Computed example of a mutant assay.
Amino acid sequence: MSDLVINQKVLPDISKSKWDQNTYSGRVKHYFASANPMTLFTSSATQEKCRKIVLDYKKGVISPDLTMDQLWRAKILYDSMYHPDTGEKMFCLGRMSAQMPANMVITGLLLSFYRTCPGVIFSHWINQSFNAIVNYTNRSGNSKTTNQQLFYSYCFATGAATTAALGLNMMVKNSHGLAARLVPFVAVAAANAINIPMVRANELIDGIELCDENDQLVGKSRQLAALSIAQVTLSRIAMAMPDMVLSPVIMNRFTRTAYYKARPLIQKYSEMPIQTFLTGIGLYFTTPLGCALFPQKSAIEVSKLEASVQKDILARDHAPKVVFYNKGL
């Protein structure tokens, strides 16, 4: 069979994605595959089989029956489940594939319980608990975040989101229109700007890991750590924006219709199901589109790094001219 891996004149390089990660469209295709929620439901046996295929292939061990399609399927599942730097299996709720189903429910809560103080506190507590799990799971490289740092970031982000939401609600308390419905998005954006840098504070202090083309650690850069964290923060806000802005717009229009006003039961019970459904549709697209805004693994010339980092790298034997780093997700 011509599609057998062993029959290929040039073996595919699975250390890279199936799609070109230097282009936005290539990154979108990659994340549509790796952030697919269906990967959450694969069996342990399938996961282990895919892991073995990938790890054996990297060692040069190739089954004579392995097809190209099987290889890439295994690689995509492996990418969705295992951390790209540590190789450890990621907690299921922290994976990008969990973003759509988990955030669908959480955003439905945020957009439905934004008017009352208990609803605001509860929904933002749930959201920031989930965000803390995602941020910790997808931190860059072998960065060690202490339990104390994680706890502080969680408390500050939850406090910031709740304070922003309650404060903004006070400002628009007499409004039942679109302005009030957009409060959850502003609060979530503010919390992301606090939570992500705090969870990854060690990278700002020690620097993000820099590796050569053989994945050997050659240095650390605080400058790139700051850039990576800013990119991740922007990506997360961009992922939340469409569903947390468009859903309120649609719901606001719907609540003004004669059909809605004439049906008390729909007024009482429809808001959360409708917004959860709309959010789910939006997140299916915005999760890969947001993740793809910036490359996860990037290359940079050593000459563009901080002077002290350049000095350390160039002092090594066979010093690389280009290094690579993982910004995280």
Rank of each mutant, 00 (worst) to 15 (best):
P118V: 02
K89G: 02
P64M: 00
L109K: 04
A98Y: 07
L93Y: 05
S123N: 07
G108K: 06
K58Q: 12
S43C: 11
S123P: 09
G60P: 09
S123R: 07
G94Q: 01
T86N: 08
L55G: 03
G26K: 11
F41N: 12
C50P: 00
Q47H: 13
I76N: 14
D56V: 00
R115P: 07
T107R: 03
Y82A: 09
M38A: 15
F32R: 05
T39R: 03
W125R: 01
M104I: 04
S112D: 04
P118I: 02
P101E: 07
G60L: 03
I126F: 14
Y57N: 01
I62A: 02
N36R: 11
A102V: 14
H30T: 15
Y114C: 09
L93W: 12
V120T: 13
F91A: 15
T107K: 03
R73V: 03
I53K: 00
I62T: 03
T116R: 10
S97E: 09
Y82M: 05
P84K: 13
K58T: 02
L71G: 00
S25V: 11
L93K: 05
R27Q: 12
R73W: 02
M90Y: 03
P101A: 07
M81A: 12
Y24M: 11
A35D: 10
Y57V: 01
V61K: 15
S97I: 04
M96V: 07
W72A: 00
Y57G: 01
Y31K: 07
G26W: 06
V120M: 12
S123W: 06
I121D: 09
D69M: 10
S34F: 14
D85A: 15
F32G: 12
A102W: 04
M90W: 03
H30G: 11
I53S: 01
V28L: 15
C117N: 10
Y31F: 15
P118Y: 01
R51F: 04
S43V: 03
L40V: 08
I106Y: 06
